[in-house]
Write a protein that binds this DNA or RNA. Structure first.
Length: 225
DNA sequence: ATCCCGGCGT
DNA sequence: ACGCCTGGAT
């Protein structure tokens, strides 16, 4: 399937020429990215920003402080991000794992598969969160799959019907794109951008979509007007 | 009312 | 496959 490489490049160039570089991850520092990756689970980034701001203002956005703070106290601070009790517990698990295995620098030095495996062992860290951390916090060449990715490529007609697993979708991208960190970074960020502004779940803006020329969903919709 | 850069337990 | 976790924006 040589064709898929061309399609993925086409999608990228259409998105990039419309939206430009996305400068991800939004927020600085490895720890802030790690924390943000957990807080944004099924939650809009706007709400995550408030939670992170609370942690910053309290002067707690460092490994040591987060390790010492109680779950209850942490839960209060991250309240605006929603699911705050379970997320506080998940953050504590993650922080504990980071501290116990020798800090962030130690994780950073791991190979991609070892790092991914370690993260997935932590309760509350699933494939998307693990890959977000691997790519955006540690600069590992791995493609992040999310709900937007699935929706956009289903509508394009590329994942049509087939109910693919996370791994299968990820393999599709990684087999058809160069393993370049900046490319993976920008590609995922651009898909999120499109998912928010045009390819929304309800009432998508197909006429204004940069991908409409190659989208089967748009073609189907255009027939009934 | 419905959704948001998911993950877990049943 | 489904219910749950939760606040905030639209």
């Amino acid at each position: 399937m040589k064709k898929m490489r061309e399609i993925l490049e086409k999608v990228f160039s259409l998105l990039y020429s419309r939206f430009g570089p996305q400068h991800w991850w939004p927020g600085d520092g490895e720890l802030e990215i790690i924390v943000g990756a957990v807080l944004t689970q099924n939650t809009s980034w706007r709400n995550v920003e408030r939670a992170i701001w609370n942690l910053k203002e309290a002067g707690l956005l460092d490994l040591d402080s987060l390790h010492k703070i109680s779950v209850e106290e942490l839960a209060k601070l991250i309240r605006p991000s929603g699911f705050y009790r379970i997320k506080a517990a998940r953050l504590k698990e993650l922080i504990k794992a980071l501290v116990d295995s020798g800090g962030i620098e130690r994780f950073k030095r791991m190979g991609i598969q070892e790092l991914r495996g370690r993260l997935l062992e932590i309760d509350g860290i699933g494939p998307e969160t693990a890959d977000s951390i691997a790519l955006y916090a540690f600069g590992k060449p791995i493609f992040v799959v999310d709900a937007y990715t699935r929706r956009i490529f289903s509508r394009l007609g590329i994942f049509e019907g087939s109910d693919l697993s996370y791994q299968e979708v990820q393999r599709f991208f990684m087999e058809n794109l160069d393993h370049d960190v900046m490319k993976f970074n920008e590609y995922h960020a651009l898909l999120v951008r499109l998912g928010k502004t045009h390819c929304t779940k309800r009432d998508p803006d197909c006429p204004g979509c940069p991908l409409k020329a190659i989208c089967s969903f748009f073609k189907e919709r255009s027939l009934c007007d």
